[in-house]
């Protein structure tokens, strides 16, 4: 569904991605794990057209989408929930949702879609007229995830959705992602909370120094001692040579 072929890229003159390659199948959840600064978020930016890509290719359902703009990626069926807080603080919850569909051609359909999404996240309906900045961190994250659903994406890029969320909300978000997967949406997610994320994922991918090091079924990665070691801050190489 999505394939990265030997991507090199970074910020200005700094290269962060050093030949990142991987491939994920349709209607699956893949969790990217790896140490801080490994380039996980950078991979997402590369896919979504926010990064200077020096070389390599990104294929979406076989089509080369390398170097497209975010708007073009949205039109191709990709939405992105970045790390951190990403709401428009002074706009209402409803208008934040509406912005998620700003590129939609059919605005009437969009209004119906907003209603559906608010059915899915009743909190958003309750607070629809509140300014987004007045929501708690967890509520803002739900708003962001809901906003990314409005356009019925084929592929969702979700960067560390669980940060700042209570364990119950994390479960909710993961369940939402699983439901989406069951409806055919492909999900690529980054998670610090690797154990619980892998538990709900189909595949796991370990990224280190801008390269995909391990890529396997989530259950296998969970059981792999090298992955356990990685979570404690080690490197795969050391483990392999040890």
């Amino acid at each position: 569904m999505l394939e990265l072929k030997d991507i090199y890229g970074g910020y200005g003159k700094i290269t962060i991605l050093n030949g990142t390659s991987f491939k994920i199948p349709r209607a699956s959840i893949t969790t990217v794990i790896g140490p801080n600064g490994a380039g996980k978020s950078t991979v997402f930016k590369a896919i979504f057209g926010l990064l200077n890509i020096h070389s390599g290719q990104i294929l979406l359902e076989g089509t080369d989408v390398t170097g497209r703009t975010p708007k073009q990626m949205i039109d191709a069926g990709v939405t992105y929930v970045p790390q951190g807080r990403n709401v428009v603080p002074q706009l209402s919850v409803y208008h934040n949702l509406e912005l998620g569909g700003i590129t939609a051609r059919d605005q009437r359909k969009l209004r119906d879609r907003i209603e559906q999404v608010m059915d899915q996240f009743p909190m958003l309906r309750e607070f629809r007229n509140r300014k987004a900045v007045e929501l708690s961190g967890g509520q803002q994250k739900q708003l962001e995830v809901a906003r990314a659903l409005l356009l019925d994406p084929k592929l969702m890029l979700v960067d560390e959705p669980s940060i700042g969320l209570s364990p119950n909300l994390v479960k909710d978000v993961f369940r939402t992602l699983q439901d989406l997967r069951d409806q055919g949406v492909t999900i690529l997610m980054v998670e610090q909370n690797a154990k619980s994320a892998l538990a709900v994922s189909d595949y796991g991918l370990v990224l280190e120094l801008g390269q995909a090091r391990m890529h396997d079924e989530a259950a296998k990665l969970l059981a792999d001692p090298r992955v356990g070691h990685l979570f404690l801050g080690g490197h795969i190489d050391e483990e392999e040579t040890a």
Partner: peptide
Amino acid sequence: TRTGRSMQATAQNPDVAQILGVD
């Protein structure tokens, strides 16, 4: 208006406006 709110989004959080496809 939607254009007006897109302008507000651009002013308040341009990164978010961009990833949502606002021009």
